[in-house]
Write a protein that binds this DNA or RNA. Structure first.
Lengths: 116, 116
DNA sequence: TTAATAGTCATCTATTTAGTTGACTATTTT
DNA sequence: AAAATAGTCAACTAAATAGATGACTATTAA
């Protein structure tokens, strides 16, 4: 299978868990240490560590060790890929909207014609 | 668990498979029948039917029966939710960019100072 | 009416996933 | 040196997933 698609699969999979989305959103605000990310969750540290690994393998989070702790950082470069994929679909409803607009225009024109 | 988050979990899960992303992208171009969607894949029709069910339960696809066939339609209303979620994270790198810009500005100012 | 077509449902298998627990490494503190 | 802290690794369980196959329903064509 295509490597890029596989990576995208991993990215969307990583985002398919609300706990991971929450963690990631926290990381957009500030860099955090694993234990800080774990706090809001009633979960073992091992489980949190696993979730972070999923985010890391998906390329959405980078970790760098600093002494005893691991700072986690949101990886925007890769997240931009996700954004661009989602944006592709956006064209649809923008197109729909255009279609609706031209439909409304058409109706207006017809109304004017009717007015005559 | 929160109902909205659960639905988002389903949406991102639905998007975490490249075959489903491909199907969905095809549906942004035109409404298609199940068997038409199945064509590009070396897969049983039952498997394709399952993938469509995943997309449907996620709310990303609507189906309406028309005689013997099922027309599938991209559900933009719900996809907009996905887009808005992804957009939340966008603020991060836009913020980063702003920070970088102001850093560059700062550097430039310092260079000017140095020039004196 | 019979045959063909479009699609789903139910069941099964192999794989992946989320979570737990216990053992381990590495670093920091006392 | 000993104890505490931060985190990972390995093994296990329960649940979910992707896919195949066979049986089924409903619609259309011959």
């Amino acid at each position: 299978m295509d490597q890029g698609e596989l990576q995208l699969d991993r990215m969307f999979h990583a985002l398919s868990d609300h706990k991971r989305r929450y963690m990631l959103l926290e990381l957009t605000k500030e860099e955090l240490v694993v234990s800080e990310l774990a706090k809001p969750f009633n979960m073992s540290k091992q489980a949190v560590s696993k979730h972070l690994k999923v985010l890391e393998l998906a390329g959405l989070v980078k970790k760098h060790r600093n002494g005893r702790v691991q700072k986690c950082q949101f990886n925007s470069e890769n997240f931009k890929i996700v954004h661009s994929v989602i944006d592709k679909y956006k064209k649809y409803w923008e197109g729909q909207f255009d279609a609706l607009e031209s439909y409304i225009d058409k109706i207006k024109v017809e109304e004017k014609i009717d007015d005559k």
